[in-house]
């Protein structure tokens, strides 16, 4: 094959104003303009979005899955970060 494959892009869609862009999938496109248009055609055919981000997949960096314990477990015993940790009198309805 002499033909170079179009790069892969990750697609993020904002479903409606006020929400985050959320990863929905990927696609191939020659450039970012085409990637945005393809994302529109592929991922918003049923009114799924109002805004599109595309990022070429190779620019996404991620942590190693093997580091999962070291990265995320230490947060599990910090219960004082959650409101339920604090005991308040019942008559205080909402705080």
């Amino acid at each position: 094959m002499t033909n170079k494959e179009w790069p892969l892009w990750e697609v993020f869609i904002r479903a409606k104003q006020g929400l985050n862009h959320k990863h929905v999938g990927s696609l191939h496109a020659a450039d970012y303009q085409m990637a945005i248009e393809n994302a529109r055609d592929v991922y918003t055919r049923r009114l799924e979005g109002v805004s599109i981000w595309v990022v070429e997949s190779k620019y996404i960096h991620a942590n190693e899955p093997s580091e999962q314990d070291a990265l995320f477990d230490p947060a599990s015993d910090k219960i004082y970060r959650h409101p339920t940790f604090y005991v308040l009198p019942e008559e205080l309805n909402h705080m």
Partner: peptide, 16 residues
Amino acid sequence: GAWVREAATAYAEKRA
């Protein structure tokens, strides 16, 4: 479609 895909790649490279 080969020439179409190839041309799009060539154009993307030129533009970049």
